[in-house]
Design a protein around this nucleic acid. Structure first.
Lengths: 137, 137
DNA sequence: GACTTTGTCATAGTGTACTATTACAGTGGT
DNA sequence: ACCACTGTAATAGTACACTATGACAAAGTC
């Protein structure tokens, strides 16, 4: 509720907007920024913030509700229920594996990926030194 | 020409089919399976093999031609020109970085990614021991 | 009760990806 | 010349994501 601009949508992505929204909320719950019982932004306000249509947000919430992540409360909004962390983490791992396999196919050495890995995990998350990476590429 | 079933399309993916085709050909060129001067499969035969429409393959080839990767030859087909390896590798690296960052956000430890990395690079590419990975996840 | 905010639902229009089908034109082999 | 290939192009229909808009119902506040 309080903070409405939790994330942004990548409109250039092939990934549908409603799916991006779903993923973002799962992440917010996993990281503890949203806890069970919390209200998520109303469909209309989130739609405004993300510059997206109401129906798109509604679809994301509806599907999250079907997955048991959110719980709809008529006239009040949606509250956080619980997340299947297991599955969410797994899908991220699978994504990582895919990325690595493609890098391997393309002939990128393991050392390069290792150093990138260390670099990413080594840096603080304050948003600084995020462009430095360019040189590493 | 000889071998027509070089790859398969993931119809469940959000990534458009024509983009998947483009990526696959770039990969084939990078790995040397297709060399400059080689003919790629005709639009119709590839469309048949991939169980995809002619127009979809045509679009992929057309865009690859616009990027300078392929060269159209009226009445004969498309031949491989050259690939901007630089950019192709970079896009794969970027994809890797994104995947790692998301894993980090989700709270997955660097050790886990490291061991997955080593495992993937350690295995042979004969297609065996590809399901073993499941246990690692 | 009036008002505001919530979610819900229905309608309609747009753009993109993809499909199916047809037709036409250039090239090469016979 | 004929035929079998190539690519090219036009048309049309389907599915999906997304948008815009308006109307309705449930809950909270005053």
């Amino acid at each position: 509720m309080v903070r409405s601009v939790w994330f942004k949508i990548d409109f250039a992505s092939h990934v549908p907007v409603y799916k991006q929204i779903k993923e973002k909320f799962k992440l917010l719950i996993l990281t503890g920024e949203l806890k069970p019982g919390d209200f998520v932004p109303s469909i209309r306000t989130l739609a405004d913030d993300l510059k997206v249509n109401v129906n798109t947000v509604a679809r994301a919430y509806r599907e999250l509700a079907m997955e048991g992540v959110l719980e709809p409360v008529r006239g009040e909004g949606y509250i956080v229920r619980q997340l299947n962390e297991e599955g969410f983490i797994r899908s991220n791992i699978e994504n990582f594996v895919d990325a690595v396999e493609r890098c391997k196919e393309v002939g990128i050495g393991i050392e390069r990926l290792m150093s990138l890995l260390k670099e990413i995990y080594g840096r603080r998350d304050d948003g600084s030194e995020r462009e430095e990476l360019g040189e590493e590429l």
